[in-house]
């Protein structure tokens, strides 16, 4: 015990933004365990357990398909469940991550006041958990594609890039919003409402042509400025259309995610010292 295994000097600090990366890497073991815990405990008391993760999107999809296929009869949608599910999966990834990272930082704050862990770990674990759920729901998606006889194209190999892009964006949003939520708790409720509005403004359940065909030019701008639209496009194209989306959409998505991620990480790590004073 002569050589201390750790050294902490409150007055000495490297650049916080990088320090946080290093610390997160040191605590990767904890990160893994937190994700495993989240996945395990989510349906812990239910009879079917993790099976719900797979079943849940299937059932939601069944309901929505039933409703929307009646609504959009005129549009002559081929394999609408695949279109719907591929969008829904990514949207859920986004909303779940942001909501739970805000909640964990604000309400699960017991830990943050008692013991040192890198503060970003809460957001990263929330996104990681949602990512695991996303990957799990790809299974029912594949089942639906099989059942409907949808074509599996080689473009599917592009999917990992789409997922990484989306993850960066989602993590950035989670960090930004949880920073805000620490200072103003009602951001959580506010964002809940915003999220609903946002979802209906994004072509998740309906075809994008519904917006693009509108006469007002503002409709198209809104769509172009909507980062989730680009994320979903990039993710959906290999699955539903069987090709990699155009470079413009791809560029927009990657740019969005990098900017949001950097902004979120910087804002969060600069403010993180104040969290324990606030929560």
């Amino acid at each position: 015990m002569n050589v201390p295994t750790a050294y902490y000097d409150s007055s000495r600090r490297s650049f916080r933004v990088f320090e946080e990366f290093v610390e997160l890497w040191r605590y990767r073991e904890l990160l893994g365990q937190m994700i495993v815990r989240n996945v395990k405990t989510r349906y812990k008391r239910s009879v079917m357990g993790v099976a719900w993760t797979l079943l849940n999107p299937l059932l939601v999809m069944a309901v929505l398909s039933l409703v929307f296929s009646q609504l959009f009869l005129t549009l002559n949608f081929e394999h609408y469940p695949v279109y719907l599910l591929s969008g829904l999966v990514l949207w859920n990834f986004f909303s779940q991550s942001v909501m739970s990272s805000m909640n964990e930082l604000v309400w699960g704050s017991n830990l943050i006041k008692r013991i040192y862990v890198p503060r970003t770990i809460f957001a990263v674990a929330a996104v990681g958990t949602a990512l695991v759920n996303l990957l799990l729901t790809l299974i029912p998606l594949a089942i639906v594609m099989l059942v409907l006889g949808h074509r599996f194209s080689t473009a599917l190999f592009f999917l990992p890039v789409a997922i990484v892009t989306a993850s960066l964006f989602v993590l950035g949003m989670s960090l930004l919003l949880s920073t805000l939520a620490v200072f103003f708790t009602d951001v959580i409720d506010m964002f809940h409402v915003v999220l609903t509005l946002w979802m209906y403004m994004t072509p998740v359940m309906y075809p994008k042509e519904l917006i693009l065909n509108r006469p007002e030019p503002i409709a198209k701008w809104l769509l172009d400025l909507n980062p989730m639209y680009h994320m979903i496009e990039v993710f959906r194209a290999p699955i539903y259309l069987g090709w990699v989306s155009g470079y413009k959409t791809l560029l927009a998505a990657i740019l969005c995610s990098v900017v949001v991620f950097v902004a979120g990480w910087v804002a969060f790590s600069l403010k993180s010292d104040q969290f324990a004073y606030r929560v």
Partner: peptide, 10 residues
């Protein structure tokens, strides 16, 4: 300034 030389277990 706070300096802690070692691992802390609360």
């Amino acid at each position: 300034r706070v300096v802690v030389r070692g691992r802390v277990a609360p």
